[in-house]
């Protein structure tokens, strides 16, 4: 019997695709960008409130001192660092600097590892 097929299927399960390191740096750039867009207004508001008075600063400090909030802040530090580093990498590659495959692989690894280290340092500092 002939099955009724609406449209030809496509294989595009991203979890079953083995991505090169450059693709991981790139998707990280996207994800960190979205996180920054969503969080920056709240962070700017928090900064504004913290500058109002000593009492409001203390309230905010208590708010972010819980461990899970520190992890959240470390995530945002990762987002800012990864977005900055991967963005500089993209800008340099756009003008032909480091756009060879081996250099691009190295710079992708460097951006990913450096952002992770900075985020870990931030987390350790907040949790300490």
């Amino acid at each position: 019997m002939r099955a009724r097929v609406e449209a030809a299927p496509k294989f595009l399960n991203l979890l079953q695709i083995r991505f090169p390191i450059g693709a991981i740096a790139s998707i990280g750039h996207r994800i960190s960008g979205v996180l920054l867009v969503l969080s920056l207004p709240l962070l700017a508001l928090a900064l504004d409130r913290s500058l109002h008075s000593e009492a409001e600063f203390a309230v905010l400090r208590d708010l972010v001192s819980a461990p899970w909030r520190a992890v959240l802040l470390a995530l945002l530090v990762w987002a800012a660092t990864h977005h900055l580093l991967a963005g500089i990498r993209h800008l340099l590659m756009d003008v032909g600097i480091g756009s060879g495959l081996s250099q691009a692989r190295t710079s992708a690894w460097a951006a990913i590892v450096a952002a992770a280290i900075v985020a870990l340092i931030a987390a350790a500092r907040w949790l300490a």
Partner: peptide, 22 residues
């Protein structure tokens, strides 16, 4: 093109489409 370079990573002939795009 977002210079992800997946193209150059997998080209079985060892070519670099990302370089051509640049």
């Amino acid at each position: 093109c977002r210079t992800i370079m997946n193209c150059t990573e997998v080209c079985p002939k060892g070519l670099s489409p990302s370089h051509a795009i640049e």
